[in-house]
Design a protein around this nucleic acid. Structure first.
Lengths: 147, 147
DNA sequence: ACCGAAACTGAAAATGATTATCATTTTCAT
DNA sequence: ATGAAAATGATAATCATTTTCAGTTTCGGT
């Protein structure tokens, strides 16, 4: 029961709507919780298929949308036109520092920036919901190798 | 010659590569420079077509990519899978405050946040290239109307 | 445990945005 | 003016994602 809390969140969401449980959803959830920082629908599909070959890509898409609705995940899209899903629950919120050359993504946290973001929300009369911040640059290694 | 500087940037880029000028590119550029904050390729296509019905959507796509390469524009994608192009030249850099309910986008600037971002770049040994920050929330108006 | 309505699934087809192909036209240095 | 190189635009292709729909599963009420 490693992910009891996450499962509870999902089950609460399921029962609050008129939704139903299914083994597919359980399998997809398990694979998602074990996955790394930012998964593609397709990547998650491949991970699930290793253990449960019967699930379909379509169901993975649908289930990821559910995760977003219940607050377990968030959809973010980096450069190319493919959506990635990020964990929202049980992991620290973080921003991204991305190397434009090699594509490496470093997760960063900065409480001071968060404070200033809150200031912006207040100034404009917004209720904060969440944010994303991606810093693009060139990492040390790529800078050394010239190209 | 309202946009002389922007045109100069583009021409410099054109001549530095082995590229060529064309009336389509001029027309698309004009429409882009007159456009609002964040245009879709399709929106720009429609704007251009009003004055120059002969240009094709494909050329608009290609030309927008050129604008990105020469530093006049930047591609950003918000929620849905459609890319939007943002002015990079001759306009202040800005971040986004987005209402999740009505979709309104407010442009914000905060020098203090920029400073902290630079600190992050330094801490990780990155050379800064640019960033994007999107703050999601609910605006005052949407909060009032309950839904 | 059984039943049936409602929800879920997965395959195939549809969609929407973007890109590749290619024959034709345009640009530009000579 | 000429010709090579690049640009254009129509069509077709691609890629990620969504819709459709017939068959399957879930679950509350019996």
């Amino acid at each position: 029961m490693k992910y009891a809390k996450e499962e509870a969140v999902f089950e609460k969401y399921i029962s609050s709507g008129k939704l139903k449980q299914s083994k597919q959803r359980k399998n997809i959830m398990q694979a998602f919780l074990e996955s790394g920082k930012h998964v593609t629908a397709e990547e998650l599909y491949n991970a699930v298929k290793r253990k449960f070959p019967s699930v379909g890509l379509i169901t993975v898409y649908r289930t990821l949308k559910l995760f977003c609705k219940c607050g377990l995940a968030r959809e973010v899209c980096f450069e190319n036109g493919t959506a990635r899903y990020e964990h929202l629950y049980g992991r620290q919120h973080h921003d991204h520092l991305i190397c434009s050359a090699c594509g490496k993504v470093i997760e960063i946290e900065d409480p001071d920036i968060e404070k200033l973001q809150d200031r912006q929300y207040k100034m404009h009369g917004f209720v904060p919901q969440g944010h994303r911040m991606d810093l693009y640059g060139i990492c040390r290694k790529c800078r050394m190798c010239q190209r």
